[in-house]
Design a protein around this nucleic acid. Structure first.
Lengths: 144, 144
DNA sequence: TCCAATAAGTTGTCATAGCAACTTTTCTGT
DNA sequence: ACAGAAAAGTTGCTATGACAACTTATTGGA
């Protein structure tokens, strides 16, 4: 029996991700911040002075894209990049004052977003979702 | 208490989606088919002769991107577009013979992919994931 | 010590994703 | 019948995401 379009769980997950990303995108837009740029900022608000490589590892993303996103954040004036003195290959990323200040507004928004997404969903259910999605990732990693 | 990076369920979902998409991308690459192009093809294998607008609605995507993806599929020779006789605004999309034949190989691959993703996960758990992710989408839609 | 391997970033290319603005065609209300 | 709205597609723009190929800098082994 052939699977129908919506029987594929990966398609369902993909569409869920698009829905959530689009929503937070609209909330961040007034601050001139895109969703993935925000992820980088979130890391920096937790801990300043990461290298681009460290950011890429934490976000499990290609360093190429990190370089471009960090470049854009620099253009926007939220961060600045500085060469490390002991390793001239790598660049450390620091918040500017503007970037630092942004944190207060954005943290509020992202936590509200998380609350909205999880509204009416129990802690137990969230744990289950994490466990099952984690299992799916493990399944495909083991096959690669 | 400030949320940590990985406490955000949306980030977890996003990273899961990337993992799954990347895997199927590598499986489809030998057939010169990208993941989202494949979604369009899947619709056409189910039912030929959809308009671009109908495809956009089914995939819940912007018609802009559908137009570009369909254009690429046409370049690759998998589909052809034809003006409707009774409405010259809209284009119907038909499989070519090559596109039709592709269906046999690809259906096998996507069903294997779905099995791999769901390995060790019960039907009950899958239903739960669908229900909870669906609830999340509903939550953000209600707020828009 | 010096050559090769490795590491960090950058640039180019392709595919996705959405928004705004536009053309062409069709429909609708008067 | 005709003006204006709406509908289908297209083009331009920005952002994300992965891969390949490249430069520059550092490290490690013979």
């Amino acid at each position: 029996m052939r699977l129908n379009f919506y029987d594929y769980i990966s398609i369902f997950i993909h569409q869920t991700d698009l829905t959530l990303t689009n929503y937070i995108k609209s909330k961040l837009a007034p601050f001139n911040l895109a969703p993935e740029q925000n992820l980088i900022m979130m890391l920096l608000w937790e801990k300043d002075g990461l290298t681009q490589n460290e950011i890429a590892e934490k976000l499990k993303k290609d360093k190429t894209n990190i370089a471009r996103m960090v470049f854009n954040l620099e253009q926007k004036g939220f961060i600045r990049r500085q060469c490390r003195e002991n390793d001239r290959r790598s660049l450390k990323v620091y918040l500017t004052e503007e970037g630092e200040n942004l944190g207060h507004s954005i943290t509020k928004i992202t936590e509200e977003f998380n609350s909205l997404v999880c509204k009416g969903i129990t802690e137990e259910e969230l744990k289950d979702v994490r466990r099952i999605l984690g299992k799916m990732c493990k399944n495909v990693h083991e096959d690669s």
